[in-house]
Amino acid sequence: MSTLTQTPTTAVSRPPAGLNWTQIRQIIAIGLVVLGLILALLNGMNWSYLALGALAGLFVWKPFHGILLSYSVISVYPVLRIISISLRPSTGLLSRSLEIIPPGATFQSYVNLFNEEPFLQWIWNSLSITVTVSVIGVAVAATGAYAFSRWRFLGRRPALIFLLTTQMIPAGMLVIPIFVIVAQLGLTNQVIGLILAYISTAVPFSIWILKGYYDTIPPDLEEAAMVDGCNRMEAFWRIILPLSTPALSIVFLFNFLASWSEFIVAKVILQAQTVSTWPLGLNELIGTFQTDWGKYAAGSVLVTVPVLLLFMWQSKYLISGLTLGSVKS
């Protein structure tokens, strides 16, 4: 625990002159790796023993790296498994093998996915819905959150609680009513119907995050700009928005993720095949009376990898965009 609470900048509480300790740990670590190697050789080149030995060694030598590395493996492994299934030949889809690159690896599932299913059509539908929702959602939330942050207007407190309340609505409770409304507007089987439904579910949480972030920006900044002749909206546009890039990009990312993979509402609103989104399309591949794990896995990889890259690229914003708003500066 002693090292856990120290901050990066304090050198004071480093382990006391632990040369001996470090040396002992290094020796044990090397021993563990060697043990792994021996076991691996004895068990007919079973390299998993070496991997285990190396991991144990890392735990002893650098415990933090040991923990972080093993947790990273736990995080990533299921993703690797999907990739692995997508590469399996059609005769070995169900297999007990733990190898990531399966024997007889092939891209046939990907080829089949493109040739036998309207995969690009699903992606296009999903993408057009998702981008529209994210853009409009961020725009609507950005101004709304500004009002919550800078004014103490009548009804502000109940409205803030209401925003939180919308998160409490049991999923599924609104599916039938939303379908009825969309049907009454004549928008079933149209991407617009789904876009409108998604925007309204995205806005409350977006406002919540953005409001927290705006709160950390001192009002003096806008006041100074207004003294210089800007009006309130110009000050918002020129000062607040640029400063809020991390939060805005996080909100965009969240809205993107949520509508990219939404399934329950999409299923009732989009019934026609030409407007099908990828969650609907992929789900059909593994329905009750037909199962095509190969194509399903290939599709999953293709829809997941871009989002993962986007998310990992944004992960530095994730911290500042989400939490700065909650900490008083």
């Binding site: 993979s261 997941t304 530095k316 994730l318």
Partner: peptide, 14 residues
């Protein structure tokens, strides 16, 4: 950090 946030980014259905 990039690896640990992966579960968060995966589509829920998948």
């Amino acid at each position: 950090r990039a690896l640990i946030v992966i579960p968060w980014a995966l589509p829920g259905v998948i």
